[in-house]
Amino acid sequence: MSARHHPSEERLLAFEAGTLSAPEAVVVATHLAMRPQTRAWTHLAQAVGGAVLDDLAPSALEDGALAAVLARLDSPDPEAGVAPPLPTADHSLPSPLRSFELGPWRWAGPGVHVRNVLGPRDGDCRVILLRIAPGKSAPRHTHVGVELTCVIEGAYATEDGVFEPGDFEEADPSVLHQPRVVSDTPCLCVAALDGQIVLPGRLGMLLAPFVRL
């Protein structure tokens, strides 16, 4: 069996603690949806949370809190309503990605297409879907900020090994990164990007005005 790539323990803890930005959380949630094995780990983190909650010295609620909540028990659950239609959402994607509208596919280099996952944003950090044809590479780029990637279909290889569906990669900002697709079918990934990707070299300079990855 090949080595499995999963989020670091500290990133999973941050996901469970709710301190990841929305774009980062989307990519981690995609990994968790595809790799139930990793959830054994997040369940442990939740159990630790539960044990601490049980042991906390209670902080008294206001007088009337119970009555106020009891009075609301019969009111309808606002979340129980019908979800708004999402015309551009793709229901073949892993469940965490199904609730977002998607932008159009755009060309981003030979064999490379990107589309925005609309919604999760945190400053310059956002989520994209990246589709790369067999044998092609993502444009050579350095990372402005952290890039998290989860493979949805197909496979790519980097200096760190082969990444298959469900695999999670946390790019090192200091590394020049050029994943190459090694599957026979296109490789579809979800990624959280912080800032613009810098495309080095002459091709990068030529592409820069057009390619806003």
Partner: peptide
């Protein structure tokens, strides 16, 4: 456990309140 379940409910509501949107 019930405690872990309630813990995640509280965590999610707090995350919403902070507009982390996750």
């Amino acid at each position: 456990s019930v405690a872990a379940w309630i813990f995640t409910i509280a965590r999610n509501l707090r995350s919403d309140a902070l507009r982390r949107g996750s």
